[in-house]
Design a binder for these strands. Structure first.
Length: 418
RNA sequence: GUGGGCGUAGCUCAAUCGGUUAGAGCACUGGACUGUGGCUCCAGAGGUUGUGGGUUCGAUUCCCAUCGCUCACCCCA
């Protein structure tokens, strides 16, 4: 086999597909329960959308997008995340003129050209929500509570919530300024990456994982001390609502998300059982994006979760194995003539709604029985020459090995199985 | 892009200091049971040891290159 899958992509084989399907069903049900409605957005968009939405200073846009020029000389990118598309669709379809407040969720594949490692692929599945139109701290709390419930419903037991507020356009500049002043004299102690971040996006220095850098950050100014009154009140209300809703969280002043558009509340859902890539989901407010896209000043908040990471964490927690699909009936045959009868019966039983299978390799009866067992068949219908002569079949109940001869008719067989 | 680890049967893994025919479990096929699954026993099939080169009397083992996978940094879901 010389053609192999592309690095960072994954074949999801039937056993695993069933796990995905189960999780997808659960997450849709949960979203709908909270009043979110599914939106399906294109897999690729104009590159410009992500430059503007996700942000030109992010790693995603500068180095991770699958971008190409199509035959019409248009610059196109496979979506690296969902939020800019949802906002685009929201404005392009004039949804903001229909209702003041709307809630969406999406589910689908995202693409980012990064080095793959545990919990990180180049093509991966994300689901996310976007709650557009309300500045209420209740919505911040709702999204966090919803995220927590979705993750739990999918089967995650241990989830930690990290919470922070990074302020708004009014208060963040003064915070950045004092952080800069604090770090400037320490610049030569910091790692090379942090030196780069110091100029590119100083907030990112905060979540450097190097011991030496962390040490220097111990007494650094934190964003919550610099919040303006509006942001401060908003954040305390969010915290209060979560506490009153019995949602425990950790305040993490070093939580700075890598996307440009966040304002006020930011958070991450973290699984303690995962290794380096331990955030199964993350999100926050992006109150300026809709205006940035040419719409009215409408606030919004949302999060995104990575399916593969969640399922990895569920597995590591020792989550329950899904039980395999049952087969109602397996048809075993003996020679050419009975085999053809078997094929016709197969179709007739399926028409009656039964899941049904037979052998297509002319295998021995013994092999067919083994196959039936492997497939988890409840019943085996055996058609042999002896049965054919009397216009009968043998029906065997696999659970207790009992079997009997009955009339060879679809109705009689269906009656036995039901 | 940088660094570490690993490539042996379908899968999970052995193989002593470099030693002659590369093994085991599971899975698979057949038989014991000639028209009957699971349990047991017996037998069988299955390998370019990732690929190419080098060292050596001899390489799965050592060296080089290359491809692939994986983990970590960066960043994110």
């Amino acid at each position: 086999m010389e053609i192999r899958k592309i690095k960072g992509t994954k074949d999801i084989l039937p056993d695993e597909t069933e796990i995905f399907l189960a999780a997808e069903k659960v997450l849709r049900e949960t979203m709908i329960k909270y009043g979110y409605r599914e939106i399906r957005i294109p897999t690729f968009e104009q590159t410009e959308l992500f430059k503007k939405g996700t942000g030109v200073s992010t790693d995603i846009v500068t180095q991770q997008m699958y971008s190409f020029t199509d035959r019409g000389e248009r610059n196109i990118s496979l979506r690296p995340e969902g939020t800019p598309s949802v906002v685009r669709a929201y404005l392009e379809n004039n949804l903001h003129k229909k209702r003041l407040f709307q809630k969406f969720f999406y589910y689908g594949r995202m693409f980012r050209q990064e080095s793959p490692q545990s919990g990180r692929l180049r093509e991966f599945n994300q689901f996310g929500i976007e709650s557009i139109g309300s500045l209420s701290p209740q919505i911040d709390a709702e999204t966090i509570i919803l995220g927590l419930e979705v993750l739990r419903n999918i089967g995650l037991k241990r989830i930690e919530i990290h919470l922070n507020s990074i302020g708004c356009d009014k208060c963040r500049p003064s915070y950045k300024k004092s952080l800069k002043e604090y770090l400037k004299p320490k610049l030569n102690i910091l790692c090379n990456d942090c030196k780069r971040r110091f100029n590119a996006n100083i907030l990112r220095v905060l979540d450097c994982k190097r011991e030496t850098c962390r040490k220097e950050l111990q007494n650094s100014p934190v964003s919550i001390d610099y919040l303006c009154d509006e942001c401060k009140n908003h954040f305390s209300k969010v915290k209060e609502l979560l506490q009153k809703s019995n949602v425990s969280f950790t305040l993490n002043p070093y939580l700075v998300r890598g996307l440009d558009y966040y304002t006020k509340t930011v958070y991450e859902f973290i699984s303690p059982v995962l290794s380096a890539q331990d955030a199964v989901g993350g999100g926050g407010r992006y109150d300026r994006m809709i205006e940035l896209f040419g719409g009215p000043p409408i606030p919004a908040i949302g999060f995104a979760c990575g399916m593969e990471r969640i399922l990895l964490a569920v597995e590591k927690e020792g989550g329950e194995k899904r039980k395999k699909e049952k087969l109602d009936c397996y048809i075993a045959t003996m020679d050419d003539k009975t085999d053809e009868e078997g094929f016709l019966l197969l179709n007739n039983l399926r028409e009656k709604g039964l899941s049904c299978e037979k052998d297509f390799l002319n295998r021995s009866l013994k092999a067919q029985m083994k196959d039936a067992n492997r497939l988890g068949a409840d019943f085996v219908v055996i058609i042999g020459p002896e049965e054919m002569e009397k216009n009968e079949i043998t029906i065997r109940m696999m659970s207790d090995s009992s079997q009997k001869r009955i009339e060879f008719s679809v109705d009689a067989i269906v009656k036995e199985i039901r």
